[in-house]
């Protein structure tokens, strides 16, 4: 199947959960320097859960659509669950065959979110200490 299935273009042209939050506890950003893809993830945390999430950025259809799909998936999950998400789960969210050269695009949002959440959890633990 083409990497540009209708669903990818739909998420690219009409991204879900795109934008910024007013009071995010987690803000995480990264880019693929090799292609200029950029993603910021913002999370509002309530009771250790993802109460709300937005992503913003620019880049290719794959990176933006995948990030958008990820935000839908993690809404309502606990931070611990997000921290444990693996690549395979992430790639299952994106219903296309991603060529090896484009994996980095599909995984950018995932990487950004996971790092942000792990850092937040670390901070939390440090506070308790």
């Amino acid at each position: 199947m083409s990497m540009y299935a209708e669903v990818i273009l739909d998420y690219y042209r009409h991204p879900r959960n795109y934008g910024k939050l007013n009071h995010p506890q987690i803000v995480s950003h990264d880019m693929n320097t090799s292609c200029g893809d950029e993603i910021t993830m913002q999370v509002e945390v309530k009771d250790n859960m993802v109460a709300d999430i937005r992503f913003s950025g620019k880049g290719c259809a794959i990176s933006q659509a995948a990030a958008s799909m990820l935000t839908e998936h993690v809404m309502g999950l606990s931070l611990g669950e997000v921290a444990k998400l693996n690549k395979e789960t992430m790639l299952k969210l994106v219903p296309i065959d991603i060529s090896p050269m484009r994996l980095k695009c599909a995984l950018l949002g995932f990487k950004v979110l996971k790092l942000g959440v792990i850092k937040a959890l670390d901070r939390g633990e440090n506070h308790e200490n």
Binding site: T33, S34, C35, G36, C60, A61, I62
Partner: peptide, 26 residues
């Protein structure tokens, strides 16, 4: 407003090899 990588991938799906990126000239 297509990203160059998307252009390249759509072309690739049609058997056309075209480079995309910063071409080592950031």
């Amino acid at each position: 407003d297509m990203h160059a990588h998307d252009v390249s991938t759509v072309l690739d799906e049609q058997g056309v090899c075209v480079r995309s990126g910063h071409h080592c000239a950031q």
